[in-house]
Amino acid sequence: MERSAGSDAVRVRLLGLGNELLADDAFGIIVAREAAARFPSLDVVMTSESGLALLDYLNGVPSLLIVDTIQTGRREPGTLYAFDADRLCTAPAAAPHGAGLREALDLARALGLSAPTEVRILAVEAADCVTLGGRMHPAVEAAIPAALDWIEEQLVALATRSSQQPA
């Protein structure tokens, strides 16, 4: 896990999930790293861990932005999907290592840990996440600027909303 210097009063964290060794799976890490450079005070966490290990990175902030890959097989590689974590369903009897983000979030909430109330996810349709040392698909790589724009939009929206709230 890598972590950039965050501000004292962290309200939002960006979590980049992925693995730079595995072709398109690098997406979440690269986007998070570029976001850390663009927004130096943003709390950015990057990890190649999966499953319930994610518990360590979810908690302690009210808002969480996540960048990851997805493979629905229904759209072209490079397609971006933005959605709330609540739309990720809890897998019934998840595959052993399949327990992921949603399960970690469910667990954190059920156990009264300081889980974020708002989790927004941006996922890119990936072509290949299993080839070690593989190159990113050009269309996935081309989606990086749009992903950074999405992060900026989310940060602006969150800031606007918090400034409108009574002190």
Partner: peptide, 21 residues
């Protein structure tokens, strides 16, 4: 049966799952 073995299904990636487990 396969959960008891705990096969490394997620070893390769942690892409988000699709809609049908």
């Amino acid at each position: 049966s396969f959960r008891a073995y705990d096969p490394c299904l997620g070893c390769a990636t942690h892409s988000l799952p699709g809609s049908m487990p």
